[in-house]
């Protein structure tokens, strides 16, 4: 299983990354940024499907029938779920359409991570693995070693810290940027109407809260090269979303905790009417 995963995902990723690295004059930081843009372009159809799925779910939540059923079956979660499923069918919405592309992208992210760690090759074992994954007719690895794993103030093969001059205090700047950009991406991509109390909205809220922390933890503990991937990927994600006209910049308040938009009052009014 591992061999197939390597052959399909990790090895091609490693070779493309090393090819870019060689092409641009052996700068790993720039290579990772260009590689990230390439991966985002390739996975764009999946992401577009994800965005469309999320948009469909948002539109559904504005539908009167959907709002009415929330009030009608407030105390009966089973019936509410049943009614929601029927509405999904009727409106031809797949509730998993926004999740599935994410699940599919997970192996790509894991493969990308393995490719990055392998390509940065900071130990004998990593370098040995790298040599075993390089297509010899495609890249002459011998010419590329030693690999230049420094970018700006960072050693890309190690967790990033910026040390305050003259002190032993290390500030994880890249980790902070990862947390902020992950949070910003999720918040900007989450419409205010998803702040309701239904299950999917609650799940979104939970994801919005934990995902930046998870990404921050990964960036804090693992190689800085991976954190650069996260930052660039987040920024491209926001850019792509904006290009599709999906971001309402008036919702900037969403970015600041405790200042986010409240659930739409219209929904509350409708619910009350339905109750009566």
């Amino acid at each position: 299983m591992g061999d197939i995963f390597n052959a399909i995902i990790v090895t091609p990723f490693v070779n493309v990354l090393m090819f870019i690295y060689n092409l641009i004059g052996q700068n790993f930081g720039i290579a990772i940024i260009l590689f990230t843009i390439l991966v985002r372009l390739i996975t764009w159809p999946l992401q577009a499907q994800q965005i469309k799925g999320a948009k469909a779910m948002t539109d559904l939540q504005k539908d009167k029938r959907y709002i009415d059923m929330q009030a009608k079956y407030k105390g009966d979660k089973e019936k509410l779920a049943q009614a929601q499923m029927e509405l999904y069918k009727e409106m031809k919405i797949n509730p998993f359409a926004s999740c599935l592309p994410t699940v599919i992208q997970l192996p790509v992210i894991i493969g990308l991570y393995q490719a990055l760690i392998m390509a940065l090759a900071s130990t004998n074992l990593d370098l040995l693995k790298l040599t075993n994954h390089i297509y010899p007719n495609f890249i002459n690895l011998s010419d590329l070693i030693p690999l230049n794993d420094h970018f700006l103030w960072m050693n890309l093969s190690q967790p990033e810290r910026w040390y305050i001059p003259g002190t032993e205090i290390g500030i994880p700047i890249l980790t902070i940027i990862v947390v902020i950009t992950t949070y910003a991406q999720q918040k900007l991509m989450t419409p205010p109407t998803m702040g309701g109390n239904d299950q999917s909205a609650q799940m979104t809220k939970t994801m919005n809260m934990y995902m930046p922390l998870l990404m921050g933890w990964i960036s804090f503990t693992l190689a800085a090269g991976l954190a650069i991937y996260f930052v660039v990927s987040n920024l491209i994600g926001i850019f792509q979303y904006a290009m599709m006209g999906q971001i309402d910049w008036r919702n900037w308040r969403n970015l600041i905790p405790f200042m986010g938009s409240k659930p739409e009052p219209q929904a509350k009014k409708t619910s009350l009417k339905a109750k009566k």
Binding site: L106, I110, Y113, Q114, I117, L120, S122, T123, N124, L125, D126, S157, Q158, P159, L214, W217, I218, T221, L222, A223
Partner: peptide
């Protein structure tokens, strides 16, 4: 997911060797 990513390295901090 975090454990899978961390586990890919064989040890914390992306470090593994013989």
């Amino acid at each position: 997911t975090a454990l899978i990513l961390a586990g890919c390295t064989g040890a914390g901090g992306g470090v593994n060797n013989w």
